[in-house]
Amino acid sequence: MMAAHNADTGGGAGRFPSTHYSALVALRGPDQAERERALDVIAQVYWRPVYTYIRLQWRRDRDEAADLTQGFFLEILEKDLFADYDSARARFRTFLRVCLDRFIKKQDSAATRLKRGGGQTAMSIDVDAMEAELAELSSRGVPAPDVGFEREWILGLLSLAVERLRSECATSGRELPFRLFERYDLGKLDTDQSSSYAQLAAEFSISIETVTNHLALARREFRLIVLDLIRSMTGSESEFRDEVRAVLGVDLP
C-alpha cells in the first residue's frame, strides 16, 4: 500500500538521491517499497493536476473527483499503469493524462464503479483548498483542462521543492538560509513587504554579505532540487529539457 501523506504538508518522502534518480524507473522496478516511494513522489506532484483535470475535463463533483483522484493513484500501483510508458513517444505528463482518461472511462462502467470507495485511502486530499483555488481560477474565466493541469503541475512541483529545501536545511542544521529564503523569496511576495537585504541583515543581526551568501546558497539548493525533481519524473534527457523549459520558461545551458 502506498504511504499515506498529505500534500499540504509535503509528505514524508525524506531526502531523495540527488543524482539521476528516476521515479519512473523505480515505479516499474521489482522492489515494492521503492515502487511505493516513487509513487508517493509522483502523487505529491500530480494529485493537484489530476484533481483539477477531473473537475474541469470530466466535470465531476468535488467528492467524486477526490474519490477518482485517490483511486487513480492506487490503480497506478495495483495495475502497473505506467508499465507501457515510453519516453520516446510522449512526455510523461501527457502519458499520465491519457492513463487518467482511460481510468475514468473504465470507472464509468457500472461493474467497476461498484469496486470504488472500498475504504482504501491512498492519500489525504485537501479538497476545500483545491475548490477554493478552482473558484478563484474560474472567477478569471474557466481555464481549459490542459491549462489547469499544467498550472497545478508546476505549482505541485515548486511546492514540493520548497518543502524539500526546508527539510534539507533543517536536517543539515542550516536553518538560517531557509529562513532568509522564506522571508525574502517567499515572504515578501506573500505579504507585499519589500524586505531588502539590509532589512534582513538588521532583522537577523547578520551582515549584508551573510544575507547574500545564505540566500545564494538556498537558491542554489532550490534550483538543484527543482531540477532533480523534474529529472526524476522524466524518461529521457530531451524530455527533461522540455519539461525544464515548460516549468522555468528557459533553456538549460
Partner: peptide, 14 residues
C-alpha cells in the same frame, strides 16, 4: 499554498 506571484518568482529564481 503558493500564490501565483510566488510561483512566478520561484520560477524566475531557479
Amino acid at each position: 499554498k503558493l500564490s501565483d506571484d510566488q510561483v512566478r518568482h520561484l520560477r524566475d529564481l531557479v
